[in-house]
Amino acid sequence: MDYVHLLDQVVEKVLLAGNLLEAEWNRPGGPRGHGDKAEVDVEIEQQLRVSLLDLVDCDYWGEETGRILTSAEFCWVVDPNDGTSDFLQGRRGSAVSVALMRNTVPVLGVVYAPVTSDRGPDCISWTKGLGGILRNGELLPSRLIHLHLEAGSKVFVSTAAANKPKLNSELCAPADFVPMPSIAYRLARVAAGDAVAGISLVPVSAHDIAAGHALLIGAKGVLLDERGEPICYGSQALLSTSAHRCFGGAPRACQELFRRKWERIFTS
């Protein structure tokens, strides 16, 4: 398979899907939906499901429109709007997330946040055979392997971290913690070099993290679970709950972060 040519096609489909997400953000009266369900999520995934399966007819794991699992070699993994709750609460930074896995290993990933707080539309992508991460068409060097936790570095955490700034500062030290929506976009921005690590302290499924995982692979980073083990997707159970916590980014930083007492976030 020509992965690089396929990536160009997938990016095109994801950007079109992002137009729907942006239009919903700008909708008079605000986005439709409540809680963690927005009506546009289904609309986006219906569009993506058809277009992606036209590119590679294979298994499919989506958040909104169901699954096709036949033990095929390839599998699309789709989250049409990672960060829906924040999106509906008016926070910028939710993202369309698409991965292609081959024999349960991510080999292509695209994460597109059409509405961000600091960058404008932001599309980050990678595939096997590409010599680095692409960000809005620009090839970036892979440098995560050289980074570690230090003063001035950043750790991307969920928006809930803003409610406990002192504790999150302590747990991320000496790095600074930065709250933001969407674990997919957190991992993508880490892969692009904006931070040393991105984390989630709640259970994640493959549709949340597979595209970001692909990007981390391209940036020579890691994605670890709560035990410090590499996250994998070798069964339906692992697709459903890939980890109870995840730590993605520079290998040395993630090895240090997963050992910290994150349970304090929920008990203090």
Rank of each mutant, 00 (worst) to 15 (best):
L171Y: 04
I209H: 06
G93Y: 05
L88N: 05
G218C: 12
G129K: 05
I124S: 00
I231P: 04
W76T: 08
I231F: 01
E138M: 12
R227A: 13
A161K: 08
P251C: 10
T84V: 08
P181I: 11
S153V: 02
R102D: 06
L130K: 13
V204Y: 07
A162T: 03
A72L: 03
N103F: 01
L69H: 07
H213T: 05
P179R: 00
I209G: 06
G137E: 00
Y3D: 03
S169Y: 02
H244V: 09
V4A: 13
C123S: 05
T241V: 15
L144P: 12
L224N: 11
G83D: 09
G221I: 06
E64L: 02
A243I: 08
S85P: 00
G66F: 09
V78K: 06
T116C: 06
S205D: 15
L223H: 10
P121G: 06
V4S: 13
G62N: 08
I209P: 04
K37F: 04
C123N: 00
L48M: 03
V111K: 04
A23Q: 15
K166F: 01
L223T: 11
D57H: 14
A38R: 03
G193V: 09
G90Y: 11
A17V: 03
R227H: 15
S51I: 00
N168V: 09
W126M: 08
I209Q: 05
R189G: 06
P179K: 03
Y60G: 02
V105R: 14
S268A: 07
F266V: 04
W126C: 07
G137M: 01
A162L: 04
H146F: 14
A250M: 07
L139V: 07
C254G: 10
V190Y: 09
H5T: 14
R135P: 01
V204H: 09
H34C: 01
V157A: 12
V111A: 08
Q46M: 12
N103A: 13
S142W: 05
Q9N: 11
V50E: 15
N136S: 06
E170I: 13
R119D: 09
V107W: 02
Q236H: 10
F266R: 14
N136K: 00
G234F: 11
T116G: 07
H213I: 05
L6Q: 03
L55Y: 06
V14K: 01
D118F: 12
V115P: 04
T84H: 09
P28L: 10
P80I: 05
D82I: 11
E150H: 08
Y233G: 07
G93S: 08
G35I: 08
S235N: 07
H148G: 13
Q46R: 14
L53K: 15
E12P: 00
A17N: 02
L20N: 04
F87M: 05
K164Y: 02
G234D: 15
T241Q: 14
D36P: 11
L216N: 10
E226T: 10
V157D: 02
